[in-house]
Each structure stands twice: as structure tokens, then as C-alpha cells.
């Protein structure tokens, strides 16, 4: 359409962009596919789901999954139970405290997980240190940056104060306000927070490894010492599950037009 190549016309990336995209695509897909094939290949040319069967039937798998699942459920319950009322309260009553609360929730991004493990060992009472449930509190701490951001974004998208005032004015109790007004309006934000927290708990390695609890990732690393195919098969299963969660989350966000910046969970 253009008669000559003016510097002003929008840049049209040709081969350059495509080469980049293909290189990027390879970098991100080759390890994935390699892992999958590695986990189903026996010798040359025979394929089997043996590694998966072996892992799933291993008693260690059930135990590790059971620990991780319990931790995930409890972490979600406590994290949501604390963050939803707190952030709602920040929106309707204590806007001035928002910055300090946000800062505190972001601290786990500054304190590396390994240091959090160290700190828990140095500060928790013995009876709690002896219990696997201490991990729950550590995980709630780790999840705070994501739960806060997700719920805050959800609440910012609606005019909470007006909704609450209107509901209170019509005679609703606080419990009714939370359950039938706030809850449904930030449903997707809460789901987002739950997904992120579950993904985090299922992938968390540092703290459980250091505190010697055999969660899924810890067991996976242990398996890897002797059975590479098995460990890779476990990795594929766990990442596929986490990816599904995250993809569900991002489609949820797109539908609600709420952007949650997820980053650096590792």
C-alpha cells in the first residue's frame, strides 16, 4: 500500500520476529516434550506408561500426596480466612492502613523462603516444630503477596463501600454482607487466590525439604536420586496439574477483566 519505505510507517517485523518466536517456542516446549517422551520411553522405540503406574502405586506417592493435599486445604482455608476479611476491611473502613498491610504482605518476596524456614526454626515453639502443620503457617506467609493482590484487585473493581453501605442501610447484618454481597462479587478473585495458593503449596520444596517433611516435591526429588524416569513422570504430572490451575486462573481473569500479576512463585 505504501509507495516507499518511510520511517514513519509502523514497523513490520518480518523474518526477525518469526525467528525469535520459533527460538522462544522451542526453548519453552522442548523440555516439556522431552520430559513427556522421557517418561514414557523404554529403551529405543517402545513406549509405556509404566513409570506413571510405578509412581502412582508406590506407597510413598500416596503418603506425599496426602500430606501435600492436607497442607493445601489448610493453607487455603487460613489464607482466605484471614485475607478476605482483612482486605475487605481495608476497603470499607481503614483505607489509610492499606499501604502498611500491602507492604507486610509483600515481605515474603523480600525474605527468601530458605530464610523463612530458618526463621521458623529459630522462633517457633518445639511442639509446633514437631508438627507438619507448622508448614501451613509458613505457606500462608508465602501466599500472602498473591492472595492480597488478587483479592485487592477484585475488590477494587467493585465499589465496595457503596455496596456495604447500601446493604447495611437495608438492614443486612455483617455476616449477610460478607456472604451475600462481598463474596459473590469477588468470587473470581477468591478463586484466583485459591488456585495460586494451591499451586504454591503443591510446588513448594525449600521449606518442607529443610524441615524434613516428605511433601510431593520432596518425595519427587528423593525418587530422582534413584529413578530418573519416575521423577520425570512425577514432574510431568505435577506441572500439568499446576498449569491447568494457572490457565484456568488466567481465563477466569480475562472473563472478569481483572488482571492479577502472577510472578516469581519459584
Amino acid at each position: 500500500m505504501n509507495k516507499n519505505n518511510s520511517s514513519t510507517v509502523t514497523a513490520k517485523p518480518g523474518l526477525g520476529l518469526n525467528a525469535w518466536m520459533i527460538a522462544g517456542l522451542l526453548f519453552f516446549t522442548v523440555p516439556m516434550f522431552s520430559a513427556f517422551i522421557f517418561s514414557v520411553q523404554v529403551g529405543d522405540g517402545t513406549y509405556t506408561l509404566g513409570a506413571y503406574r510405578r509412581m502412582i502405586s508406590d506407597p510413598g506417592f500416596g503418603e506425599a500426596l496426602w500430606i501435600s493435599a492436607r497442607l493445601a486445604i489448610l493453607t487455603v482455608a487460613i489464607a482466605i480466612g484471614i485475607m478476605v476479611p482483612t482486605v475487605t476491611w481495608l476497603h470499607i473502613r481503614a483505607q489509610r492502613a492499606k499501604r502498611i498491610v500491602e507492604f507486610i504482605t509483600l515481605l515474603p518476596l523480600i525474605i527468601p523462603p530458605v530464610v523463612i524456614a530458618l526463621g521458623f526454626l529459630g522462633s517457633m515453639p518445639l511442639w509446633l516444630k514437631d508438627s507438619v502443620y507448622m508448614l501451613v503457617f509458613a505457606y500462608v506467609v508465602l501466599s500472602m503477596p498473591y492472595t492480597f493482590r488478587s483479592i485487592d484487585t477484585g475488590l477494587s473493581a467493585i465499589d465496595v463501600k457503596t455496596l456495604v453501605d447500601a446493604a447495611r442501610g437495608l438492614g443486612a447484618s455483617w455476616r449477610q454482607v460478607m456472604v451475600s454481597i462481598i463474596g459473590p462479587n469477588i468470587q473470581s478473585a477468591i478463586f484466583g487466590a485459591i488456585f495460586l495458593t494451591v499451586a504454591l503449596v503443591l510446588g513448594e520444596f525449600v521449606i518442607s525439604n529443610l524441615l524434613l517433611w516428605s511433601t510431593l516435591p520432596v518425595w519427587m526429588a528423593l525418587v530422582g536420586m534413584s529413578d530418573a524416569e519416575g521423577a520425570v513422570a512425577l514432574s510431568v504430572m505435577s506441572l500439568v496439574f499446576v498449569w491447568l490451575l494457572l490457565m484456568l486462573l488466567s481465563s477466569l481473569n480475562r472473563r472478569r477483566k481483572v488482571r492479577v500479576n502472577v510472578g516469581g512463585l519459584s
Partner: peptide
Amino acid sequence: GLDLADGGQITVDGRDITNVPAN
């Protein structure tokens, strides 16, 4: 000059600038 014509001519002080770059 931020967009280019598919036909015709533009002159400024009699000079044809139809294909002169914007800058």
C-alpha cells in the same frame, strides 16, 4: 508525511513534497 498518498500530489511553496519523508 505520517501517512502516504495512493495518488495525487502535495506541494508546499510550489515544491512537490508528496514523497518527502515526514522528518
